[in-house]
Simulated assay, not measured.
Amino acid sequence: MEQPRWVDAAAVRRSVSPDRARRLIRRELADGFDPASDPHRLVAPVGDGQLLVMPSTNGRSAGVKVLSVAPGNPARGLDRIQAVYVLLDADTLSPSVLVDGTAVTALRTPAVSAVAVDALAPAEVTSAVVFGSGPQALGHAEALLAIRHTSSVTVVGRRGEAARAMAQRISGLASTHPLTTRGLTVDDPQVEAAVREAQVVVTATSAATPVLDDDWVADGACVVAIGSHEPHRRELGSALLGRSLVVVEDVGTAHREAGDVILAAAQGALDWADVRTLQDVVLGRVERATDRPNVFKSVGMAWQDLVIAQHVGRA
């Protein structure tokens, strides 16, 4: 059997730009792929972390991502999330390409969020706030700047040094217009004002409890929460979800994994019948709210990895 070809992280980024990734994800939904058809991911506890196995097929290709989440890794100088992606030949199911799955994850998560932001955020986004100072903070800022001429990005982190360093990295992303960035710690009183002024707020943290107050987000603003895929963890409070248009990737998946939504519904703040999907938004069945916040809660799904890996494999 011919050995699978290896595609490293640098080749992944050369093959697919952040905005190209957004368009690939959006096209998959617009063309009618049903995220509910994705197999459930397997999640196994391993030590202090988790091992995830995420298979998917879309009729053209098949693939599986094997991913580990090790919360203690950043202190060791390693990535919290590490992965490898196996792309399979559609007919024989023979492994054809092995892809750096960490790079795929870093690319596809902001791409999915960007699909939501493009539809749920105002056309003019002058100010954004990103909670978190890891790779997803940078990826989401890059994805946002590809679709909106944002002039100010505030990074909020537990450690001021890390937040300021990430803000500096984000400042280097803007090439077509001036961009002001700053890094704040979570307990800085300026955080509230920044969120109240923002048209886009991203929470990309490992927090288990809400990272911002429920009444800080302005009507018409878009909040993207991507930090958790567990039913008992949340980055957003119940009252915020209760007063917002809430959008998820797939309702069944959200029932299992989207702690922000699960806990809000359990506390009576939100009715599951009112939760809509990203495909509803892409197909125009749901329009962004202007009289309340718009919340997109993402847990990440295997079909998204397959879309990116499939394109990388062809390239």
Rank of each mutant, 00 (worst) to 15 (best):
residue 153 V to D: 05
residue 305 D to C: 11
residue 61 S to D: 13
residue 303 W to L: 01
residue 223 V to C: 07
residue 153 V to A: 05
residue 149 H to E: 13
residue 15 S to E: 04
residue 53 V to G: 10
residue 226 I to W: 02
residue 292 R to S: 12
residue 38 D to Q: 13
residue 176 T to V: 14
residue 34 D to G: 10
residue 39 P to V: 12
residue 42 L to Q: 15
residue 46 V to M: 11
residue 214 D to T: 02
residue 25 I to Y: 00
residue 206 S to H: 11
residue 10 A to K: 12
residue 194 A to E: 08
residue 12 V to F: 06
residue 220 G to K: 03
residue 254 A to R: 07
residue 305 D to S: 12
residue 229 H to C: 11
residue 91 D to W: 01
residue 164 R to V: 14
residue 124 E to M: 01
residue 129 V to P: 03
residue 61 S to K: 13
residue 86 V to C: 14
residue 145 L to M: 12
residue 281 V to S: 01
residue 21 A to T: 02
residue 35 P to G: 05
residue 262 I to K: 04
residue 251 V to C: 04
residue 197 E to N: 13
residue 223 V to P: 02
residue 88 L to T: 03
residue 45 P to H: 04
residue 46 V to G: 08
residue 84 V to T: 14
residue 102 T to S: 13
residue 72 G to N: 13
residue 189 P to N: 10
residue 115 V to S: 08
residue 269 A to W: 06
residue 83 A to T: 03
residue 251 V to M: 04
residue 230 E to T: 15
residue 220 G to N: 04
residue 38 D to T: 15
residue 148 R to T: 00
residue 225 A to N: 02
residue 243 R to P: 04
residue 145 L to H: 02
residue 169 R to W: 10
residue 89 D to Q: 08
residue 1 M to A: 08
residue 199 Q to R: 14
residue 91 D to L: 11
residue 217 V to L: 10
residue 299 V to K: 04
residue 25 I to R: 02
residue 307 V to E: 05
residue 282 V to W: 07
residue 82 Q to D: 11
residue 44 A to N: 00
residue 174 A to W: 10
residue 191 V to G: 07
residue 171 S to R: 14
residue 214 D to H: 10
residue 241 L to P: 05
residue 43 V to L: 15
residue 17 S to W: 09
residue 166 M to I: 15
residue 226 I to M: 06
residue 197 E to L: 15
residue 62 A to K: 13
residue 120 L to F: 05
residue 114 A to Y: 00
residue 197 E to V: 05
residue 247 V to I: 10
residue 215 D to W: 05
residue 66 V to D: 09
residue 244 S to I: 01
residue 221 A to S: 13
residue 159 R to L: 09
residue 144 L to S: 09
residue 6 W to E: 00
residue 54 M to S: 01
residue 155 V to M: 06
residue 49 G to R: 07
residue 176 T to A: 15
residue 7 V to C: 09
residue 72 G to A: 15
residue 44 A to E: 10
residue 111 A to E: 04
residue 22 R to F: 05
residue 3 Q to R: 14
residue 234 R to K: 08
residue 173 L to C: 08
residue 309 A to P: 09
residue 123 A to N: 09
residue 110 P to Y: 07
residue 1 M to S: 12
residue 28 E to K: 15
residue 129 V to W: 04
residue 68 S to R: 11
residue 186 V to N: 03
residue 235 E to D: 11
residue 282 V to S: 08
residue 171 S to A: 15
residue 14 R to G: 13
residue 130 V to E: 02
residue 217 V to M: 07
residue 59 G to R: 03
residue 105 T to P: 07
residue 76 R to H: 12
residue 40 H to G: 13
residue 275 V to H: 09
residue 89 D to A: 06
residue 169 R to K: 14
residue 63 G to V: 01
residue 60 R to N: 05
residue 263 L to I: 14
residue 3 Q to E: 12
residue 95 P to R: 13
residue 315 A to G: 13
residue 299 V to Y: 03
residue 65 K to W: 04
residue 69 V to I: 15
residue 158 R to Y: 07
residue 66 V to E: 12
residue 134 G to Y: 04
residue 100 D to Y: 02
residue 38 D to V: 15
residue 117 V to C: 03
residue 165 A to Q: 14
